[in-house]
C-alpha cells in the first residue's frame, strides 16, 4: 500500500474520531450548562479542543457562541467543519481504497456540516438536536466502515488512527477534569461533576453497573484508564492499537515493525501494570503526561516508518 494512502486512511480516521469526541463532549456539557447548580464553565472544553488564544478568550461563556465556534467556526482549525473537511480531503485522495458507501457517507457528513440550515439551527433551535444529527453521522460512518471495508492493511491503519486519537482524547479529558479538582477540591464529592465526565465519554452506564458505591474519583479513574471492557478507556485503545498493528507485520519491514512493536508494547505494559494506587503515588498528571507522550511517540514512529515522512 502506498505510504500516502496509509497516512490518509490513518488521518481520516483520526479526524472522524476527533469529531466524535468533540460532539459528545459538547452535547453533555451543553446539557450540564442547562442544569447548573454550581458555576458552569466551558473553559476546559475549549482548552482541550481549541487551545487557548486571543480568539477563544473572546468567546466568553455563552453556550451557543461556544458551540457554534466549535462546530461551524471557520477560524477554529479544530471545528467540526474544518475537521470534517480535512477528513474528506484525506478520503478524496484515497477514494479507490475506501468503499463507495464510505465515501458517500463522509460526503454526506460534510454536506450536513456545511449546510446553512445547520448554522441557523445552532443559532435558534435546540443545540442538542443539532449535535445529535451530527453524532448520528459519525455512527453511520462507523457502521459503514464496519460492514463495507475490506479487512486488510488499510483497515488496520484506519483502526490504529481511531484508537490512537481516542486514547489521546481520553487522557486529555481526564487530565482536564482532574486538574480542575486541584483548584476546587469540593468537586471531588460532586456527583454531577463525575456523572458528566462519564456521560461525555459514554461510560455512565458501565460505571453504574460496575461500581455500586456511588461516584468516587478513584473508581472513575480506574474505569477510564484501566477497564479493559470500556471502549473509551485508555487501555482499551492501546490494546486495539496493538491488535491492529500486529496485523501489519510483514517480513519486508522487520526493523520498522520491531521498533513500533516495542513502543506499543511498552505503553501497554506501563498501563497494564499500573493500579489506581500506583497512579496516585506517581501523581495523576505525571502519569497522564507520560501516556500522552508515548501515544504521540507511536504516531511519530508511524510517520517515519510507514508514511515515508522521515
Amino acid at each position: 500500500m502506498l505510504s500516502r494512502v496509509a497516512s490518509s486512511l490513518y488521518w481520516l480516521s483520526r479526524y472522524v474520531e476527533r469529531s466524535d469526541g468533540i460532539l459528545r463532549m459538547l452535547k453533555i456539557n451543553y446539557a450540564s450548562s442547562q442544569d447548573t447548580v454550581q458555576e458552569f464553565t466551558w473553559e476546559p472544553i475549549i482548552r482541550i479542543f481549541a487551545g487557548h488564544d486571543e480568539e477563544t478568550a473572546k468567546l466568553g461563556n455563552d453556550s451557543r457562541t461556544v458551540i457554534r465556534y466549535m462546530v461551524t467556526g471557520k477560524s477554529n482549525p479544530n471545528s467540526i467543519l474544518n475537521i470534517i473537511t480535512f477528513a474528506r480531503e484525506n478520503a478524496r485522495g484515497v477514494q479507490e481504497h475506501i468503499t463507495k458507501d464510505l465515501w458517500q457517507c463522509l460526503n454526506e457528513y460534510y454536506h450536513t456540516v456545511k449546510d446553512n440550515r445547520l448554522e441557523n439551527a445552532l443559532k435558534k433551535d435546540d443545540p442538542i438536536g443539532v449535535l445529535d444529527v451530527l453524532i448520528k453521522q459519525v455512527m453511520l460512518y462507523y457502521g459503514t466502515v464496519e460492514i463495507t471495508m475490506e479487512r486488510g492493511e488499510g483497515r488496520s491503519f484506519m483502526n490504529i488512527g481511531t484508537y490512537l486519537e481516542r486514547g489521546i482524547q481520553s487522557v486529555d479529558i481526564l487530565d482536564a477534569k482532574f486538574v480542575s479538582i486541584d483548584d476546587n477540591p469540593d468537586l471531588l464529592r460532586d456527583t454531577t461533576y463525575w456523572k458528566h465526565l462519564l456521560l461525555s465519554l459514554g461510560g455512565y452506564e458501565i460505571y453504574l453497573k460496575t461500581y455500586r458505591t456511588g461516584f468516587e474519583a478513584e473508581n472513575v479513574l480506574e474505569q477510564v484508564v484501566l477497564n479493559n471492557d470500556f471502549p473509551r478507556s485508555v487501555i482499551y485503545s492501546v490494546n486495539h492499537i496493538q491488535r491492529y498493528f500486529e496485523r501489519l507485520k510483514s517480513d519486508s519491514n522487520l526493523d520498522s515493525s520491531r521498533e513500533l512493536s516495542f513502543l506499543i508494547g511498552r505503553l501497554q505494559s506501563h498501563i497494564r501494570y499500573s493500579s489506581v494506587k500506583t497512579i496516585e503515588d506517581e501523581g495523576l498528571h505525571t502519569f497522564l503526561t507520560q501516556i500522552r507522550t508515548q501515544l504521540f511517540g507511536i504516531g511519530d514512529a508511524l510517520n517515519i516508518h510507514y508514511f515515508a515522512n522521515s
Binding site: 500500500m1 502506498l2 510483514s250 519486508s252 519491514n253
Partner: peptide, 17 residues
C-alpha cells in the same frame, strides 16, 4: 510525492518500502 527516482528507475513509496 508518492514517487521517487533512484538510479534511473521510478519507485513508489509504500508501507513495505
Amino acid at each position: 510525492r508518492d514517487l521517487v527516482v533512484k538510479d534511473q528507475k521510478v519507485y513508489m513509496k509504500t508501507t513495505v518500502g
